[in-house]
Design a protein around this nucleic acid. Structure first.
Lengths: 111, 111
DNA sequence: AAAATATACCTTGACAGGCGAGGTAGCTCG
DNA sequence: CGAGCTACCTCGCCTGTCAAGGTATATTTT
């Protein structure tokens, strides 16, 4: 089953931050990792991804630098900042809370 | 902790359908019940609520009728349709799936 | 009786995020 | 040389949220 976009809306930034906790990475790779972890059920569209990077960098959650390495096209690497880590911690907390609330709201027959 | 709107985006319709499984109800009451169940952590804004009713009715998920009863202002009651019930079942399935995927994406340190 | 409060409905316009479509560029393989 | 993969980015549309504003009735308070 694939997951609709609106359901993931609002989690985009969190997912990216979580990925960057595993180490610096670049757009293409980040997206591949996410798709893989999601079991193919979900992946960002490129436009969504780069929009998110821009937003996150503007907000100081991530920082970027050009990689000079390897073959193929140039890569822009991203690193999570201190502020990004704090944000991620808060987002994880919120996700736990959201699960409880939504379970109560959509899974129960009667309250 | 309160939950941000974007996080709930995409669940609005599902939450309303789930509420209507408990029986016909009207906007004001539906919203009160939702806030209550969410422990005050979440409630729809009126504009969001009525926009959702319109959307759901246009899509045949709910049907409405005017209540002639009681004191106070007139109430428009909503009932979930067969199609709405099927949709709700699918949404619940999707929510279960979403929880798994998001747990994998944002709660783990490494894949 | 007037004012405040609660119930109950609805619309408009602005805003933000997702994303289809399109574009650039380098490397590899047949 | 062309196809396909890697890798980046932007523009403009669409959709859902919601602040603000509006209407109307019943109860409670002053």
């Amino acid at each position: 089953m694939s997951i609709s976009a609106d359901i993931l809306r609002g989690h985009t930034d969190t997912i990216i931050l979580a990925q960057l906790m595993a180490g610096d990475s670049y757009g293409y790779e980040i997206n591949k990792n996410i798709s893989q972890r999601a079991g193919g059920a979900y992946g960002f569209k490129e436009a969504t991804l780069y929009t998110a990077f821009k937003r996150l960098e503007q907000n100081g959650m991530i920082a970027s630098y050009w990689g000079d390495d390897g073959p193929g096209a140039r890569r822009r690497y991203y690193a999570i900042t201190e502020a990004g880590m704090r944000q991620l911690a808060a987002d994880r907390q919120e996700w736990s809370e959201t699960k409880k609330v939504l379970d109560a709201l959509i899974l129960t027959k009667e309250g």
